[in-house]
Nucleic acid binder design. Structure first.
Lengths: 351, 351
DNA sequence: AAATACAATTATATCGATCTAACATGCAAA
DNA sequence: TTTGCATGTTAGATCGATATAATTGTATTT
């Protein structure tokens, strides 16, 4: 439609934006009236509304949310700080958050803290400077405490997800890690397993501690005590780390008959390590995960895991944050979603 | 440090933000001077600067980037539209984009278009309303053309990545898909393969078409013609689709000795299908991918693939966009990154 | 000594929207 | 006729920053 100049398709930046003033002039009303129309106010008659709408279309006006934010002293931008975007689980949470926020005309700025405290602080400051109305935070380590302090100071509500920190005025949403792990252990015991190992994440994180606790409780539930050398923790939560830890476990001799892993990603790493040592996961050693990411059902063997619906967690986090933004006096919520055991091939054989 | 009221940790939203006016009053200078100080202008003497800095610290002032954006008529926000965040490759690109932009004090808003045209249009509008200075776009289908038109109209520069669209005033960065696939085929032929199959993505996308072309050219390079039934395309680019397509290929009988896949994710899906049918990938059938996502090296067999450094692509895209924002008269760039073959176990056995 | 230059600071208008209070209307009630 | 009230519209101040041009005070030149 637009008549491009010949030669290269280089249109100079049409820098003069159409504003409400232009619309008002074109429709022969005041700027105030035009403003009321774009906000669908019913103070304005149908006739005037139609006239203004026509001008908007004629001039190609686009609303300037940033200018409105400045005046109204509230913003339609939310911030999201992800611990590790390369974990598909977090990517799904992010996707859920964004889609829910988008439906309420919010935009979401994001940043990857890469598990680093200084980076996280920088990000929080940049987000505050950019006037976010609220923040989604998946804390890395304990470093996040001072950032939560700061957010509280400037009055920006926040929602933590997956990992939480005690004593802060922030909502939290995450799975019942203890119940999930106990269900996993119960299932393995039912399959006849007694010598069960655990490959966990860093215990500094709430989720790392809770899943370990859940595993140990689950063992106690059935009068079992894991061998010390069968319970390991890795510093970073990814396939590589689990791969290495599992190789070490296997090479030490006398391995467990079942291996409970912190999450699906680490279960995959562990299974790959078993295959590398000539073992068949699910047959020689049972394996379980946590998260139920899309990949789990495809694996051979398909992975027994705990489903917690990542996208839904994202949407719930979004709703919780939006609720607190609307009504800041509302106390923070604490939402624990119930885990669901999905038994698949990786724990199918009875021992 | 902050003395919280007893009972619940509910601090009422401290809504009165500290502004430059407050700082100026506290430091007994004008707002203009304070403004120059926060922008590190050297017009101001060291002494005055120090005085203002002290006031900033004393009052806990935070800069309001949004207000500054309004006045300067430029913004420090960029938009990013991802085709599918659950693909770790895109997650890495996103991470690279964000980290580079963060270093230049930009924030990045993002949204997942979920391969849907209407959603993409809504997102573009929301981004324009929120005054983004530029947009990163990985187009889904051809639907993106009208959105590019619109961006051009309002003078917002954009950078496409991974997939491009002809005839638009947008920079593009992506891998040399044809060269990559030819290298893959050459490698397989060298290993003794002649009957080579291809599991591709939707040909509507530039990348889908280019990788298919590269495969076919590679075959021609060695005087080979693939069998028609060995060249398949799937509608969605993920493990599931490749898993299904590969099962069908195997069940049809007389499968190829090597299978070239559109990307790593699909290669994993294909390998899982082979395992499910009792075959050993890399031994019974060679498999190759494209992207070299972190998981590839861990697999058993580890995956032969084309490395294109996703995070680096993200950073390059960011630099290209920032350059055009600084200097809008600069013509769009077209950057093609050279692919690098990483030969691993999945194609190790010689036939 | 007057003119000029320069450095440091500041008053005021401005970005694009919303909010408050005021202003015309027209119509019902006193 | 006057008052009151509801309805639709509008002028002008405002959000928190930056840009422009003006204003100081001091040093340099002629």
């Amino acid at each position: 439609m637009s008549d491009k100049p010949p030669g290269r398709g280089l249109s100079r930046p049409q820098r003069s934006r159409v504003t409400l003033d232009d619309v008002a002039a074109h429709a022969e009303v005041s700027r105030s009236t035009a403003s009321l129309v774009v906000r669908n106010s019913k103070l304005i008659t149908a006739e005037t509304t139609k006239k203004v709408r026509r001008s908007i279309a004629a001039l190609g006006y686009t609303y300037n949310q940033a200018a409105a934010n400045l005046r109204t002293q509230r913003s339609k931008t939310l911030g999201m700080i992800i611990a590790d975007l390369s974990n598909p689980f977090y990517a799904l949470v992010a996707s859920g958050i964004e889609s829910e926020c988008g439906q309420h005309r919010y935009v979401t700025v994001f940043a990857d803290a890469r598990e680093d405290a200084d980076t996280q602080t920088m990000i929080v400051n940049r987000f505050i400077e950019n006037d976010v109305a609220g923040i989604f935070l998946c804390p890395s380590g304990n470093d996040s405490a001072q950032n939560l302090d700061r957010l509280q100071e400037v009055g920006i509500p926040s929602v933590l997800f997956m990992r939480h920190i005690q004593g802060y005025d922030a909502s939290y949403i995450g799975p019942d890690n203890v119940a999930g792990m106990r269900a996993v252990v119960a299932h393995l015991v039912e399959q006849g397993h007694r010598r069960i190992g655990f490959v966990g994440g860093p215990p500094k994180r709430s989720s790392g501690q809770e899943r370990l606790d859940g595993f140990l409780q689950g063992m106690r539930d059935h009068g079992l005590t894991p061998r010390a050398e069968h319970v390991v923790a890795v510093p970073t939560i990814d396939r590589q780390a689990a791969h290495g830890a599992c190789l070490a476990l296997l090479d030490a001799g006398d391995p467990p008959t079942a291996l409970v892993c912190y999450n699906d990603l680490m279960a995959f790493g562990a299974m790959l390590a078993m295959i590398r040592r000539g073992l068949t996961p699910g047959k020689d050693i049972a394996v379980t995960g946590f998260d139920d990411i899309p990949e789990s059902v495809l694996w051979t063997p398909s992975l027994t895991t705990i489903s917690i619906d990542a996208e839904n967690i994202g949407r719930m986090a979004a709703r919780a944050l939006l609720a607190r933004i609307e009504n800041p006096d509302q106390p923070p919520e604490r939402m624990i979603v119930a885990p669901r055991l999905i038994a698949r091939e990786s724990s199918a054989r009875r021992f």
